[in-house]
Simulated scan of single mutants.
Amino acid sequence: MEIADLITWFEEWANPAWSENWDNCGWQVEPGILQQPARVLVCLTPTLAVMHEAIACNANLIFAHHPLIFNPPKSLRRGEAIADMVRLAFTKNIGIYSAHTNFDQVQDGTADVLAQILELKDVTPIVPTQNGLGYGRVGILQPLMTLKELLAVIHTRLAPPNLIVSPTADLHQEISRVAVLGGSGASYISAVVKTGASAYLTSDCKFHQFQESRDRGLVLIDAGHYATERPACDRLVQKLRSLNLDWVQLSDQDEDFRQVLP
């Protein structure tokens, strides 16, 4: 399958037009590779380490969840990460494509994969957008679990470096309704409360957002940005392999930019 056909297939599933106004989905760098057979390296975040991995693997497309370029750069200078990524993309003929908030909304996107990992039932979006899609997912645990059991499942299946949990949470509390949203989901706390969820798995939560959740009777669980979004990248690789591409692989150089010291 040529890269142009691959992108057409993907955009029929996760239309970049669905992305938020502040976002930058779609082509980040396209050095003239559309008619080449697709050799795809999938990653969460496009970094120089991922670029060098793509070069070593003879990949011609880095397919990333996070955009390389969020804000228009005022200059491009050697030694700066974005500039060096763009330079290598053109000199090595490696495209960089991003699917961000459009990928968050769709079936088998970031939120849906989290819901599947926790085996939630009767799943619906936290905030619907269109055609039954939307941001986040909320569903039922069957059988229900104590909070302690739920945290153990999250540790086992997501392997986060740590979990940050509401301090007054009762570990023996029975949890039946759970909300999930990969990446930075603290701004959805009010929407989650309206769903009737007892616990909310997301990341990048601040001090006062834990306070807000506690005051509103919601157990907030922060598993980290990487742990909550990387599984969807793995699922994307599985989907791409079903297309019989020339080559596709999940990056070994993807990084969790937070380190928890013992």
Rank of each mutant, 00 (worst) to 15 (best):
W18S: 09
D204Y: 10
F63W: 13
N102V: 05
S190P: 01
L236Q: 08
V123H: 06
L6Q: 10
T146Y: 10
L261T: 09
L158Y: 06
P161D: 13
A159R: 14
D246G: 02
I7Q: 05
E229C: 10
S187M: 08
I175Q: 02
V178N: 03
Q238L: 14
K74Q: 14
L250Y: 14
P16F: 06
A17T: 11
A115N: 03
R157V: 00
A115I: 04
A159L: 11
L151Y: 08
A227T: 09
A14L: 04
L76E: 10
R177P: 02
L41Y: 02
E119G: 02
L218K: 04
N60V: 08
P231T: 10
L133G: 01
D108W: 03
V153S: 06
E149Q: 15
L245D: 11
P72N: 12
S251G: 09
R241I: 05
E30Y: 06
E174K: 14
G196S: 08
S187K: 12
E255L: 15
L147T: 09
V193Q: 09
A197P: 08
N21Q: 14
E149R: 05
A232R: 08
S187Q: 12
I33P: 00
A179K: 06
Q107V: 10
L236K: 09
D246Q: 15
I189H: 02
Q116W: 00
L171A: 03
C205H: 02
E149I: 01
L133S: 10
Q28V: 01
G95M: 02
A14V: 05
G26D: 06
P31N: 07
I3L: 12
Y188I: 03
T228H: 12
L218F: 08
W18Q: 12
L41A: 01
G132T: 07
D252N: 14
G183D: 06
P16W: 04
G26A: 09
V29W: 01
E80T: 14
H155W: 09
L44K: 05
F90V: 11
G136C: 13
I55L: 05
G134Q: 09
F10T: 07
A4V: 12
L243G: 04
I126P: 11
A54Q: 07
E2H: 12
D234W: 07
R77C: 11
V138W: 11
D84G: 08
E80R: 12
M51A: 04
F70M: 13
R39F: 00
Q259P: 00
D256M: 03
V113S: 06
S242N: 14
V50S: 01
L133D: 08
P37Y: 03
L76W: 10
P31S: 05
K74R: 14
T110K: 01
Q130S: 13
L150Q: 03
P125L: 11
F103H: 00
